[in-house]
Structure formats: C-alpha cells, structure tokens
Design a protein around this nucleic acid. Structure first.
Lengths: 159, 159
DNA sequence: AGACAACGACAACTATGTTGTCTATCTTGG
DNA sequence: CCAAGATAGACAACATAGTTGTCGTTGTCT
C-alpha cells in the first residue's frame, strides 16, 4: 500500500514485460525465432494500412530511414513483400506475406492465451477492472510504439 | 470491452510510457537534460547498494561491461563518483554524488506528482485497485530494468 | 603456493535510432 | 505547361544501447 510514483511506473513496465517476454519466448518456441516484438508491432502497423516505408515511419513515430530498415529486415525474413506501386513509381507497396499473416495470427493467439491465464489468476472481474482503469488513464488512442531497443531484443534467451 | 491480449499489453506499455515520458520531460525542464530513464534506474540501483560496476550489472541483469559504460556516463555527468576501494584494489567503489542525490529526489517527487494527477483523474479507490491488481499479477519482486534502447532515449524531445 | 574466481578494461560486433544528403518522381500553381 | 516544391526511398556517418571474448590484476581458498 501507499505505493510510490516510481513503483507505479515499474508495475506497469513489469506487466508489459511479463506479457511480452512470455509471448516472445513462445513465438520462438513455435518457430518464429527471428521475430522481435518490434517486428510484430511494425507488422501490425502495416496490416493496419501503413503500406509504405515512409507511412510506417509516421505511424510508429520513427524516421522513414529507420522504418525502411525495419522493412528490409521483415522482407529479408519473409514476413513482408515489397512491390513496385503501379500508380507511383517512387513507392514500394508493402504487403504482408503469408508467413507474416500466420505470424500475426499466432502472436495474437499467444497474447490472448496469456490474457486468459491472467483472467484465471485474478478473475474476470478484476481483469476487466484493470483494463477499464488503464483505458481511462491511457486513453483509447493508439499507443505509440516507437519503441526501439529492448522491445527489439530477443528476450527469450535472457530469462 | 472484451479487449484482446495484445491490447492489454499495449495498455500497460502506454501507461508506463505516459508516466516516464512526462517525468523525463519534466526532469529536462528542471535542468537535468542529460538524464535518461535508464540513468535514473541505474542510480536507484546504486543507491540501493550496487556499489560496483559488476554488482550493478547483476542487479540490472546486464553484463558488467554494459554496466561499466553506464557508470562511466553517470560519472562523466557528475551523478556518481568512483573511488578506489581501500579493501579491494580491484574494485572501484561507487558513490552517488550530491547532484545524483538531488536528481533522485527530484525524480521521485515528479513521479509522485504524476501519480497524484492520476489519483485526481480516476479517484484514489481506483488507483489503489489498479496498483493492487498489478501487484497481484506482476508480483512484488523487483522488476528487471535491463531495459536498453527507448528507455535510454531522450523521450522529452520526441513528444 | 597454486588454482580459481572476480573486478574492471579493451576491442569487435549487433541492433536500433538519428541527421543529412541525394536522386527520382509526383503535384500544384502561375 | 512547366518550374517549384514536396515526397519516396536510398546511402552514409554517427550515437547509444546491448553482447561476447579476452586480458591483466588482485583476492580467496585449499
């Protein structure tokens, strides 16, 4: 009780990490060893309509150069495809590959399983309350995921 | 309602970022422009008893080399002092400087203010509930802060 | 005394970000 | 209808984290 401000921040970081670490480890176990959380977020942004590197950069609040490099990695690993845009010769249209789609589905499934585990741990009412309070505080606007670094690391091994 | 697993993770990330971004910006405004969240965490670990680079590395779940570099930065910026340990010639004893102490105090105050803002926004009962639920889920064990990258970035400018 | 462990330093590498510059291409307004 | 400006993507240089591996010095323990 009477927790301090810093503790509150750390609690939320802990919750986030707890989920993301577990999800990353599980993804690795299912054969997606080359995926970092950052890649998942980028892929989601592409799925949500960021169909060019520059646009992806905007959505992730990152420079287009950084976005282009993330795209290059994703392409190299077979999660997205880049095709020339027939309507605009400057652009390379991004498309999620089949492998990318199954990755997204798998990731979503894993997160949902983790959420279910939490639900069993504390009960549906409390989980709903947690989500409701967080939503009230953080808002419903999309969270910025311009989150380089540890989000980008392979956390599975370090546990 | 019926939020998904990924959303839950993002909500907690959002909450954490919201606090940390605001705190970093406020610290910068108060004259601590060269401080990243990572530095604050490291300083707290040193204050909590990590009095050598290797020990700091252990506490932050990071290699001693990485810890030594963080220490070097903190020393360069005047937040910690390194003195030869009279009892062990291999070690450099870490001590938080006066400036470091005031930084820690200031940071703590800012986080507490932010927490108070949240309290006013949603009411003390809900905040207590939030903390209680998170504690139940995340546990009381210290959260690992081996969090390179965006935690280390100067988030104040990018808002 | 000798074997082993630990501290801190150095070097090389990875991953992600940034700014700045450049070319090619689109768009728009006089 | 063409010149000026905006935008897409690429390249290069650099910053800030992290990692592994190696090494010399110093403690510790049998």
């Amino acid at each position: 009780m009477s927790r301090s401000g810093p503790d509150l921040a750390l609690l939320m970081l802990g919750g986030f990490r707890s989920l993301v670490d577990a999800a990353t480890a599980e993804l690795a176990a299912r054969g997606y060893e080359d995926v970092r959380p950052l890649h998942d977020f980028a892929l989601r942004a592409i799925a949500a309509g960021a169909d060019s590197a520059s646009e992806l950069g905007r959505r992730m609040s990152v420079t287009k150069q950084a976005a282009a490099r993330t795209v290059a990695v994703l392409e190299e690993r077979g999660y997205v495809e880049r095709n020339a845009d027939p309507a605009d010769a400057r652009r390379m249209r991004l498309q999620i590959s089949e492998r990318g789609v199954t990755l997204l589905r798998t990731g979503e499934g894993i997160f949902n399983e983790l959420r279910k585990q939490w639900e069993q741990q504390i009960g549906p009412a409390k989980l709903a309350e947690l989500e409701s309070i967080l939503t009230e505080l953080v808002g419903v606007q999309p969270v910025r995921v311009d989150t380089p670094g540890w989000l980008a690391r392979d956390l599975g091994e370090t546990i």
